[in-house]
Design a binder for these strands. Structure first.
Lengths: 260, 260
DNA sequence: GACCAGAAGAATGTCGACAATATAACGATT
DNA sequence: AATCGTTATATTGTCGACATTCTTCTGGTC
């Protein structure tokens, strides 16, 4: 019984001090399907507002309707799918009336993240910033070689997700993941297609610099300004230099859609 | 085709200006089951760490295993249930190692909420604060008549949920709902049972006052201090006057578990 | 011509049954 | 005595089929 008690204790409280090995967790079928669905939504394969026929998608995934429906409920909880009784599943749409709310939620999460990072001990802070600077390169590259807006958006969202992931807070990371896919949905729902400002490089450079300086409030305000501009642009309130492409590019890399 | 287009437009962008009536949405069975499950977890009927046998729970709810499993996946996404392949469902446990993370997430959401409220126009701000002061009475009452800690905790959590709900941000409201049920899980997982400080009345009075004064940053710091004490208390780092009861009371009122 | 009512079709909602897997108990072995 | 291997039980994972519901099409009426 002692071994059982130990296992139970581990389940309740996690490894006591330092885990010798990572607890192995085979992903369930529902996990795998949910990842595929999120990818399909994120990449635009399942377009916003389109109906999701269970039998069709299930057969494409090589599973029955049961597991598919279970996975779908996860995305319903995330707000990525909408289920109407009798009418089945539709991909959610993030319309103009929801953009402000969405970015307010992102500011709550990501703003808290940058403040947390800025408040760390300099040594620890720089270690985590190093990981973030890795995400900077793809953004620079996609901007430099004139990639389509979708790829630029991928790099941008990856960086924003990295901000939250760097805090190590799994709950906030999960919430950020959901909000970022919803951001993609908002962009895909937008009549002008995917729109990206050309100065995002400067904004993020400033952001990382302020974190590095330990000035969390300034970093949060930079983020707030950045988001405000994004909202205005999505709502068509701004006329300014931008790069817009309705990217038909498939195959984004979904750094934030990993298995838990 | 015009009517269809109009309906689609409504689905995408929501009602154009001011909706004459609220769009009626019959709750699906999955919705209803999910509410029941959350209530059972919140009230302690389903205890943290306990296994949830599908057949048993399904028959108690009067449904088959299929809909139950679909609902369960929603709670898995929320972090309220854990599913291990082959081993089925267990109620999540929020152990000591997760308390800090949980309260950090709550601070991100609720801190953002109080700052938002404080930044509103005085007229609008006071209107929403009026709704919050309604939630103040139950807290006072439960403290005054020496209720058990569980009832005090209910009133406390209702008030905190009300803070976020008052912003009108549905996304943040949903996230707050999840985090607050997890807070209850943490309390139920705690060895000392439900613990409540006796000075929470003062803290919340101060909080609402600072919001009323438009001082969002101060309100957020009050919240941060309050949460820090909660974390310390749950981790047993503090020895101070408190009221602790392992409340066996069933039937909490779950203001935050409404249907969407 | 627009609107309403009814019927046909298709998809969903739900259930029961079977196969696959994990758990627990038991005995054998070092 | 503790550990390992085996077996039995119970539960989960998956699937196919049926009843129900929504959607769409058609025809009729004002």
């Amino acid at each position: 019984m002692n071994e059982t008690q130990d296992r139970d204790a581990v389940r309740r409280n996690g490894p006591v001090s330092r885990p010798l090995v990572n607890m192995v967790r085979r992903p369930s079928t529902v996990d795998l399907i949910a990842v595929e669905l999120r990818n399909a939504i994120y990449s635009g394969t399942l377009r916003p507002g389109s109906s999701v026929r269970e039998a069709e998608v299930a057969s494409q995934l090589g599973v029955s309707r049961g597991p598919l429906r279970e996975s779908a409920q996860r995305l319903v909880q995330e707000g990525l799918l909408v289920a109407r009784p009798g009418a089945g599943l539709r991909v959610a749409t993030v319309g103009a009336d929801q953009v402000a709310e969405l970015y307010a939620a992102r500011l709550a999460i990501e703003g808290s993240a940058v403040r947390h990072l800025a408040g760390l001990e300099p040594e620890d802070r720089e270690r985590r910033l190093a990981a973030l600077r890795e995400l900077f390169a793809p953004l620079e590259a996609s901007l430099a070689d004139g990639s389509d807006a979708r790829r630029i958006g991928d790099a941008d969202l990856d960086l924003h997700f990295g901000l939250v992931e760097a805090t190590g807070n799994l709950r906030m990371t999960a919430m950020a993941s959901t909000l970022i896919v919803q951001t993609r949905l908002a962009a895909l729902s937008h009549r002008d297609g995917y729109v990206v400002r050309t100065d995002i490089l400067d904004v993020h450079r400033t952001l990382l610099g302020q974190i590095s300086d330990g000035d969390g409030l300034a970093a949060e305000q930079t983020l707030a300004g950045h988001f405000q501009q994004s909202v205005d642009r999505l709502l068509g309130r701004l006329e300014e230099p931008f790069s817009t492409v309705v990217g038909a590019a498939e195959g984004s890399h979904f750094a934030f859609n990993r298995l838990p």
